[in-house]
Design a protein around this nucleic acid. Structure first.
Lengths: 203, 203
DNA sequence: AATTTAAACTGCACTGTGTAGTTTACTTTA
DNA sequence: TAAAGTAAACTACACAGTGCAGTTTAAATT
């Protein structure tokens, strides 16, 4: 790794981002002043403005870059020789892990609160964050092409799976109405979801 | 109807609520100043404060009262003599109508943005808004007791149905990524949901 | 029908506070 | 020594909330 040669500028920048994220997660974007952010980052306010020309720029940059950092692509492609159920189970388990990740959840919370009433220009930015083909979608297409699933609308089916998962593993936690799922609850959720999906869709 | 005798006070109060709701829906709670609300309501700011002692009180009162107004109870109880599928279809169709309602959606948008980073005390208020047994839950219990459905965790099953519906009819619209569903799309969604649910749970 | 009364509303000036963003004079670091 | 950071004061503004003198409204009284 070439991580030793961090210039002071880079160090400060990272501190700002860390501090801003912490502030956003604790107070939300609207209630995080630039002074608070600078203080949390252990950096002078002027330095914040040297790195980010305005609060809006800082917010946008942090949210999108953190988002990209966290949407890593898990690419287990469809394998015609392996059994459908176990493949789907692995994929779905992966989706659950992604959506349960607490850093991810906090980021979504920040982004949602910030974008819900944002002007159109910012809404587009949010839209881009969401429209991103998942490994699950690719797999569904291939499995269907291979005749292992009933003919189906891939997007519809994908939303069904996501809906089944999120209603238990994501939304209640995002709204802080429910504790994060335990490992057991996760596997149960995955099994039930795959079971229900295949009971309807398996060819 | 005894609606003619509205005192001036009542008229003003209603104007304030209407104005505040309009402001909230357009700008969000945080960016709706009391001046803006008074202006939209065509009422002096002082009058707003005569009716609501602070902004927080105004927000809380409006959100909860509007919520209660909109969560009307549809009570179609389980009927052992009628066929399972048609009963469930009616109930699910009702749920979809409720969650698609644009006034409801706007209210949820306002409430979410407002409560997402609120202190614990306010979070409890939100929690109460959500924990409310639906006709669907009651029906599932009775249908299961009657042996028409496999033994199941009622809450889990309920969340599954809600998840299947919301991932297509609610969340994308809330985030303004998707237009509201057409009538056809709604019935298709209802049919697919009931179909999938029963394919797994019907005894 | 004219007058009185009390409650509610208005408009406006004013206080206090919090915040984005700027500026300045000084210090550190590569 | 030049670029980057620091600390603190400062500007300009928006907002929540208050106080008050004067006006409107509707109903009760004459």
């Amino acid at each position: 790794m070439a991580e030793q040669k961090k210039t002071r500028s880079v160090i400060k920048r990272e501190a700002i981002i860390t501090g801003a994220l912490a502030a956003f997660q604790q107070y939300g974007v609207a209630d995080s002043s630039m002074d608070k952010i600078a203080e949390l980052a252990q950096v002078s306010k002027r330095t914040v403005y040297n790195h980010f020309e305005s609060k809006e720029v800082l917010v946008a940059e942090i949210i999108t870059s953190e988002w990209e950092k966290r949407t890593v692509v898990y690419d287990a492609l469809y394998d015609a020789n392996k059994d459908i159920k176990s493949q789907l189970t692995a994929l779905v388990a992966n989706e659950v892990e992604l959506m349960c990740d607490s850093a991810m959840m906090e980021l979504v919370r920040v982004a949602m609160a910030h974008f819900l009433f944002a002007p159109d220009t910012l809404q587009h930015q949010m839209a881009k964050m969401f429209e991103q083909e998942t490994a699950l979608q690719r797999w569904l297409k291939l499995a269907m092409a291979d005749g292992k699933l009933k003919t189906l609308d891939v997007n519809f089916a994908h939303d069904q799976i996501k809906g089944l998962l999120k209603s238990r593993a994501f939304w209640p936690q995002l709204l802080r109405q429910q504790e994060p799922l335990t490992a057991n609850e996760k596997t149960e959720l995955v099994d039930m979801t795959v079971g229900m999906f295949l009971s309807y869709y398996q060819a």
